[in-house]
Design a protein around this nucleic acid. Structure first.
Length: 695
DNA sequence: GAACATTCTC
């Protein structure tokens, strides 16, 4: 009897029941298999339970059925209670552990352990009364799969030699399994050797495995050579492999051309195809292509797949179009952790931290990517207190995880913004204790932190220990010297950068150099740098460079040069640049030019309170109260709030902020009386000093 | 005549 379709099975079964069906083990096993295969696991299990007698096939079939249904626990229970076990039973259970069939990544480690134990047990136990072999080709391929996952090369090599020695465990799968195992364990040459040995009897799976191996190794030319050789072997997976290989190696346009080629060749597209090509659209930030692929996906009915729907959301996030991203999320990807992660990253990048945090809290499990995104988002948006709170949260929640270098960099950035030396030092020592490989970026962040916290000598000490210096490292140190009024050191370091290390300065280097000149009032040198950056290094000055020069001229009482340079700015001046110019006008008491700048500035930054205050101060410094009144009037209509000047100090329990006139602190009375004592003390000391000087 | 293994995705 051959049973093929479900219809036949049901028909046969109902007839059997009607005619007073006497259970034959063989037939019932078949029924169990076909019920399970068609998704009727409960019916299959009922049949199994009702069997008066079972053989090893019955047990194997029901175990396989549960494994197919991703129920490892149930399979394990049946495995342990089965009175008949043969090699197939062991192989099935082994595969269940290796493939982590119930998809619980957190248990992967434990499962691998169980698989290894079972493998050892198989070799020692007398399966089926010792009448059959302990290991066959199924065992070997499953174990090679495990070896690939664990990067357990020594076991992989042992299996390989066992295969060669015993000769009877080779199968059609052995070649592809070996290639895959060696490649995933990082032994590319071994993978190639196996491939060359089985060239005569190459099947498409082995070919796909070696193409994937080449892509992993970034050997794309070789991958293409093999791909275009024996084209008749190429199937959908082959095309998917080569396309994803190009995407993963950053050749997105080439991947796209291959995708077009695949369609033109009439190859069937599947989930993997769309997932890879969506990845390419994301990396290219190509909204138009992304929308086209999205349309394809909807038409082909792949949007249900979680890889695909999150891929679509990711494309829109990477393109910065959050309206589309939200739409794609709510229509087809709700609850998908990858989609949520993409949106958290995107919102963090654009500084929308409320939305980023809201989504972050919806995740059941937070991964490194979203933690990192949130940290860097907070610091980029200058929300340092939130970043510190997040760090406490991270340490509490992920007690066993060492914060990733990117998180530590963000935290150093937060310390730098707040000028919080003490936490900065703590993070520094934490890095020394726990980070095994401290890279240039982390060192640059540490130098920047120490410099911005006022400890230029610490910064310098770290800088001098670094052997391999890059432009970022130099820029950070030059900027540090500039802010600490060490213009000679800054200038010398720039020379060292160009001459000793032969590193090309970039736009940021010149911001550092120009701000050195600005702080030191070095007009001529500043002009030299400003011209050199374009003529010698081909770097177009940006808003920051112009702002430095305007400020430099303003402080040196050379308003004519400042306004002449303002005229030559080749783009629409931004608020920073106009602010610098306004400041120059204030220093040089030119109300006429100030007023012109004022008009432009208010057009750009109409809502910002601090700008109005800056304007009012320009006129107040001249005693021009009519103008001050005019600005104040403008402020009133627009709900402009003046940003109060404030100081802050980082104590054990966090940051305490002091705003002028603030009495909200619980101990504000005590604070103010202590302050009064300090002021009295200072005044007293001043009087003593003065009388000493007079004496 | 029934049961177990390989290649490509965020």
């Amino acid at each position: 009897m051959h049973l093929k379709s479900l219809k036949e099975v049901l028909l046969f079964h109902s007839q059997a029941i009607k005619s007073g069906f006497q259970s034959i083990i063989f037939t019932t096993n078949q029924l169990i298999h076909y019920y399970a295969k068609n998704g009727f696991l409960r019916h299959a299990h009922k049949l199994f339970d009702e069997m008066p007698e079972r053989n090893v096939y019955s047990w194997n079939t029901i175990i396989a059925a549960h494994l197919k249904n991703h129920d490892l626990k149930k399979a394990e229970f049946l495995f342990n209670s089965s009175p008949h076990k043969d090699l197939v039973t062991y192989n099935s259970m082994l595969a269940g552990y290796v493939n982590n069939v119930d998809d619980k990544p957190e248990l992967e480690h434990e499962r691998s352990d169980l698989a290894l134990r079972l493998f050892v047990e198989m070799q020692s136990s007398q399966i089926h009364g010792g009448s059959c072999s302990r290991i066959d080709e199924f065992t070997v391929t499953t174990m090679l799969n495990l070896v690939a996952k664990l990067c357990f090369v020594s076991l992989g090599t042992q299996l390989h030699s066992y295969m060669v020695k015993s000769g009877n465990v080779f199968s059609g799968f052995s070649c592809s399994s070996l290639i895959d195992m060696y490649s995933k364990c990082g032994c590319f040459r071994e993978a190639i050797r196996v491939f060359n040995e089985c060239r005569g009897c190459l099947d498409s799976v082995s070919k796909n495995a070696i193409v994937a191996a080449c892509c992993r190794e970034s050997e794309l030319d070789l991958a293409l050579d093999i791909f275009w050789h024996e084209v008749e072997l190429n199937d959908t997976i082959s095309w998917n492999t080569i396309i994803s290989g190009f995407v993963q190696n950053g050749f997105h346009e080439k991947a796209f051309r291959l995708f077009i080629c695949m369609m033109e060749n009439g190859i069937r597209l599947n989930n993997h195809t769309f997932a890879s090509i969506l990845g390419a659209c994301s990396s290219m930030r190509n909204l138009k292509l992304g929308k086209e692929i999205h349309a394809h996906v909807l038409k082909a009915g792949f949007i249900e797949n979680s890889f695909i729907s999150s891929g679509v959301v990711d494309v829109y996030c990477k393109c910065g179009n959050m309206d589309y991203a939200k739409f794609a999320y709510t229509t087809s990807s709700i609850g998908n952790a990858f989609s949520i992660s993409s949106m958290i990253v995107a919102y963090s990048l654009m500084g929308n931290m409320e939305e980023a945090r809201r989504l972050f809290d919806t995740l059941i499990e937070q991964n490194t990517v979203v933690w990192t995104a949130l940290f860097s988002g907070y610091v980029k948006s200058q929300c340092c207190e939130e970043a510190f709170n997040l760090l406490s949260e991270f340490l509490a929640k992920e007690a066993n995880v060492i914060p990733d270098a990117l998180i530590l960099m963000s935290m150093l950035g937060a310390c730098a913004i707040q000028a919080s030396l003490h936490p900065g030092k703590q993070i520094h020592s934490y890095i020394l204790k726990s980070v095994t490989k401290i890279d240039g970026k982390l060192l640059s962040s540490m130098i920047d932190m120490y410099s911005k916290c006022g400890h230029i000598t610490y910064a310098e000490r770290i800088f001098l220990q670094v052997k391999e210096r890059d432009s970022v490292l130099y820029n950070v140190m030059i900027t540090g010297y500039a802010h600490h009024g060490k213009e000679n050191e800054a200038i010398m370091l720039f020379k060292e950068m160009c001459e000793r290390d032969n590193i090309r300065p970039n736009a940021a280097t010149f911001v550092a150099l120009l701000s050195t000149c600005r702080h030191a009032g070095l007009v001529e040198l500043g002009e030299n740098y400003f011209h050199a950056m374009e003529s010698d290094y081909g770097i177009q000055p940006e808003a920051d460079h112009y702002a430095c020069m305007i400020d430099l001229y303003g402080r040196a009482n050379q308003l004519e040069k400042a306004s002449a340079l303002m005229e030559r700015v080749p783009f629409e001046p931004d608020a920073v640049l106009l602010g610098a110019f306004l400041n120059a006008c204030r220093i040089n008491r030119n109300l006429e030019l100030a007023r012109e700048a004022e008009e432009k500035l208010l057009r750009i930054e109409g809502e910002s309170g601090s700008r109005y205050v800056q304007l009012a101060n320009v006129y107040a410094s001249e005693g021009n109260w009519v103008e001050v009144g005019r600005i104040r009037k403008k402020m009133k209509g627009k709900e402009v709030k003046k940003l109060a000047g404030c100081s802050w100090i980082h104590l054990e329990n966090g940051v305490t902020i002091f705003t002028s006139g603030d009495t909200s602190h619980l101990k504000s009375d005590a604070i103010y009386s202590l302050l009064a004592c300090l002021v009295a003390e200072i005044n007293h000391l001043a009087v003593v000093e003065r009388s000493k000087a007079l004496a």
